[in-house]
Design a protein around this nucleic acid. Structure first.
Lengths: 257, 257
DNA sequence: TCGTGTTTGTTATGACGCATAACTTCATCG
DNA sequence: CGATGAAGTTATGCGTCATAACAAACACGA
C-alpha cells in the first residue's frame, strides 16, 4: 500500500501555493460534476465530454487533471469508500458506547441510507467492475472493504469489552476461518484486542445480511414491496441479525426506531 | 453446460421452416459468443465488433438479429434469469420434499455456485443497470425477481404444508408488509395456499442474507478470506438462516455438508 | 517593468464503436 | 425458372476517448 503515486489527498496545507489550490479546486469540481451526472443519468457511466461541457470546458482539458477515464474512476471509487466510511462511522458515534445494539442499528441505517441516497457510488464500490475499468491492483478493493467493516468491528469490540456480547447462534467455526482471522489481526491491527473467531464470523454474517438487503433495495429489486414494507423488513432484519450475533437486547425499548 | 440449445422457451411452434431454424441458431450463437466474451473479459461490457469478428462476420450483420445493443442485453438478461431459475429449481428438486432444510441448503448452494460460476450474468441480473442500458419498463426486473425467489417460496410452502415449519425468530410484521403480501398473492398466485406474513418476511430475510454473501463473494469483496474460510462461512450462514426462519433441524446430522 | 518558463486551456486529428444506408448474394417458394 | 426477400457486405455519419500541436494566462526573478 501507500503507493498511490498521483494521490494528493487530504495532505495538510503546509505550503499551498495559489496554483495548487485552484488546481485542487478544479479536481474537486470535476469529481463533483462527474458524480452529479452519474446521479442524474442513473448509471456509473461517465463521459469526459459531458463533464467538460457541464463545466464550461472542452474535453481534452480534463486530461490535465486525470490521465484517463480509469484514473478519474479510481478517484471516485476512493472517495466513495471515504464517504461510506465517514457516514457509517459518524452514525456509530452518535449512539452511546454502552448500547452496542443501538450502534448496530445506527450503523445499519447509515449503510442503507447511504446506498439509497447514492446508489451509483454504492455500485462503484460493491458492484461489478465498470466496463473498461481495471482495478490498479488487488489493494484498494480489499483495503476499502476492510474500512467499510471497520465500524462493525469496532462495534463488536466495544460490546465484547463491556462483557455484554452474548455468544452467537452459530458457534462452530471452520479452522481455516480462525487462521484467516489470526493473520488479519497480525497484519493490520496488532494493537487491537483479539476477537473471537465465532464473533468475527457472526459479524461477517451481520454484514452479509445487511449488504444483501441494501443492495437488493438500492438496485430496485425490492420495488414490489412498498417503501413502508421495506422499512419494516429492514428493521426486522437488523433486529434479527443483532439477536443471532449475540448483541444484547436494548434496555430501553422506546429507543427502537 | 448452460447452453440449452435451440429452444428453452417457445417449444410451442413445432413447425419451423429451415430459415427460421438457422435464424434461431444464429441468434443463439450471438448470445453464446457475447456471454463467452463477457466471461473472458470479466465485464458486462460487450462490443458488436468483437462478437461479429469472433463469429467471422461483420458488425452490421448483427443488426439483422438485434435492433441495438440494448436489445441484445435485454435478451441476455432474460436468459440469465432463466439460467438462475433453472439452476435453483433443479437443485431444489434433487432433495426430497420431506427435508425442507436440505432443500434450503441445496437452493442456497446452487445460488452461490451459479453466481460464482457466472459473475457476469449475476451482475446483469442483480447489478446496476449497465451503462447505456435502460430497462424496457419496470416489468422484467420485478418479474424476474419473483422468479428468482420462486423456488424459495415453494420451499417454504412445502415445509408449511408438512407442518414442520416452526415460527421464525422475528414475528412482528409491519401491516403494510402484510397488505403487500396479500396483493402479491391475489395478483399472481391465487391458486397457491396463503403464506403467513411472518413466514414471507423471514423468507425474504433468508434471501437477503444469501444474496449478500453471494454478491460480496462474486464481486471479490471476500477475497481477504481464503476459499476454505468462505466455504465454512457460507455453510454457517445457511444454517443460521434456516434456524432463524424456523426451518426444522435436519433429522440426519450426517447429511450436513 | 519585462522576459522566460510553466500551467492551463484551446483546436486539430486519429482511432474506434454504434448505428444506418445502399448494395450484393443467394436461398426459398410460387 | 424467376421473383422475392432474407442475410451479408462495404460505405458513411456521428460521438467518444485520447493525443498532439498550439495559444493564452500566470508566476517569478533579474
Amino acid at each position: 500500500m501507500t503507493t498511490t503515486p498521483s494521490e494528493t489527498r487530504e495532505s495538510e496545507h503546509p505550503v499551498l501555493s495559489r496554483r495548487e489550490r485552484t488546481r485542487a479546486a478544479t479536481i474537486e469540481e470535476i469529481k463533483e460534476t462527474a458524480l452529479r451526472l452519474m446521479h442524474e443519468q442513473g448509471t456509473t457511466d461517465l463521459r469526459f465530454s459531458d463533464i467538460a461541457r457541464e463545466m464550461g470546458m472542452t474535453a481534452p482539458a480534463l486530461y490535465r487533471y486525470f490521465a484517463d477515464r480509469d484514473e478519474l474512476l479510481t478517484a471516485l471509487i476512493a472517495d466513495a469508500y471515504d464517504d461510506l466510511a465517514v457516514a457509517v462511522e459518524e452514525a456509530r458515534s452518535q449512539v452511546p458506547v454502552e448500547d452496542p445494539t443501538g450502534r448496530w442499528h445506527a450503523v445499519s441505517q447509515a449503510y442503507r441510507a447511504w446506498a439509497s441516497r447514492e446508489p451509483q457510488q454504492f455500485a462503484l464500490i460493491f458492484g461489478m467492475p465498470v466496463p473498461g475499468y481495471v482495478a490498479p491492483d488487488a489493494g484498494p478493493t480489499t483495503e476499502a472493504c476492510r474500512r467499510a467493516i471497520g465500524a462493525l468491528k469496532a462495534l463488536f469490540f466495544e460490546a465484547m469489552a463491556q462483557g455484554v456480547l452474548g455468544r452467537p447462534l452459530i458457534r462452530e467455526v471452520g479452522e481455516s476461518f480462525a487462521t484467516a482471522l489470526q493473520e488479519d489481526h497480525d497484519a493490520k491491527h496488532a494493537d487491537e484486542p483479539v476477537i473471537e473467531p465465532e464473533t468475527f464470523q457472526s459479524m461477517l454474517q451481520c454484514w452479509a445480511s445487511l449488504h444483501g438487503f441494501t443492495s437488493l433495495e438500492a438496485y430496485g429489486h425490492l420495488q414490489f414491496l412498498p417503501e413502508e414494507a421495506r422499512d419494516t423488513l429492514f428493521e426486522a432484519n437488523v433486529r434479527l441479525t443483532a439477536i443471532t450475533a449475540g448483541l444484547p437486547l436494548p434496555a430501553d425499548p422506546s429507543k427502537q426506531e
